[in-house]
Design a protein around this nucleic acid. Structure first.
Length: 153
DNA sequence: GCCAACGTTGGC
DNA sequence: GCCAACGTTGGC
């Protein structure tokens, strides 16, 4: 089992919005970055756990846990001309962009903020979220990092 | 294949 | 709202 962290702006899609979905499940559409796509398409497995991270908000940080409910499949919104994430080079025959479905597991008892994570940078070791200028919206979390962060809760 | 210009991300 | 950092695009 692998672990992941996925970022979302709560104004776009929040942990509350995920919990409110039917089956508490929603597709993670709109990723238009090749590194993030490759992880979703090739590496995520059913049941993998995901830290749900709120970005671009008052207190950015990890707010909850989700799990992979469906492995990588084409992001059909890429070929919807009216969609915000329309990407005309991607077609049903030759999809470029992929997504997964995630299911709500639970909220954290408190937000583990980015600033708090930074205080533990030494213990966490190499963590993409803490790398300077990092902009990946989907990133791997090692088992040790996962356990350590949950220990902060 | 280089690289400047541009758009986006996301913390602050 | 600002702006640094980064990925992508497109001219050459």
């Amino acid at each position: 089992m692998n672990h992941w962290l996925m970022k979302s702006e709560p104004g776009e899609f929040s942990i509350d919005a995920l919990e409110a979905m039917p089956e508490r499940t929603e597709h993670w559409d709109g990723v238009r970055n090749y590194q993030a796509r490759n992880m979703m398409r090739d590496q995520m497995q059913l049941g993998d756990r995901v830290f749900f991270y709120h970005s671009n908000t008052e207190v950015p940080g990890i707010v909850g846990i989700a799990e992979i409910a469906r492995t990588g499949y084409p992001d059909f919104l890429a070929w919807e001309p009216t969609d915000k994430h329309y990407a005309p080079k991607s077609t049903p025959d030759k999809p470029i962009w992929y997504m997964v479905d995630i299911r709500f597991v639970r909220r954290l008892q408190r937000t583990i903020s980015l600033s708090e994570l930074k205080e533990h940078a030494d213990a966490l070791g190499d963590f993409p979220l803490l790398r300077r200028g990092n902009r990946l919206s989907v990133m791997p979390v090692s088992a040790a990092q996962w356990d350590y962060i949950l220990g902060l809760e």
